[in-house]
Amino acid sequence: MTDPATISAHATAIRLRGVTKTFGRGESAVKALQGIDLDVPAGELTMLVGPSGCGKTTLISILAGLLSRDGGELAVFGTDLATLRRDRLAAWRRDNVGFIFQQFNLVPQLTVAENVSVPLVLKGESVAAAVRKAHDLLATLGLEGRGKSAPLKLSGGQQPRVAIARALIHEPRLLVCDEPTSALDAELGRRVMELIRGRSTRPDRAVVVVTHDDRIFHLADSIAHVNDGRIDQLTRGAAYARPTTSTSMGTSSASSGKNPGVHT
């Protein structure tokens, strides 16, 4: 595995070549990924966009180590996840990946700080110490004094911040976000994405966001357009033009075609 300290900005954090995935067999088989080539640079925020059923979720699941690929090559921070057995893979995820789920999946029976502390507790830290760190992190996210609250008592703007805190508390190298703004209004969605970007785009990290939300496309360093299990186009540039229509998936308004790692 590559030493994080040696990774410089724009080095490749995730490298996919010809990655395929098929669900089912025979006539009912569905080819979810049909040869994905993609480089996700370290220190950048990459968005996966595309219509429903295009393979975004399958792709993000594979590169987060939740799903195995059928073919092709995949290296995440230099590690071929296919070489890891199930327990080692779980441990790898525990140490290297932070997740922000679409519905945030905050456990309602636990306090906000306990929810945030879960990744540290999974790594073996004591609950008391982990909760203490969670309170500190929550304070930096503007949630000072809310650590003992129940997640459901939080406002719609506070819950995403808790999810972000949980995803980042163990300093993961890969942050994976699944539709993090889908349930939020435009302003809140923008603020959440700015927070994710501000907190996680560091030289030793990579952020991958699956989204349909074209209101946040401008916050991406690159956007991979997924269609029918392939990447149609990779759009590079932090200053992605904000589209004027809300229905656009961003493919027609892409600003540039720089695509260092894509073979379409």
Partner: peptide, 15 residues
């Protein structure tokens, strides 16, 4: 609670 167990599993909790 299955969705939370699923989240824990994704986050690296062993079966």
């Amino acid at each position: 609670n299955l969705r939370y167990f699923g989240a824990f599993k994704a986050m690296g909790a062993s079966t």
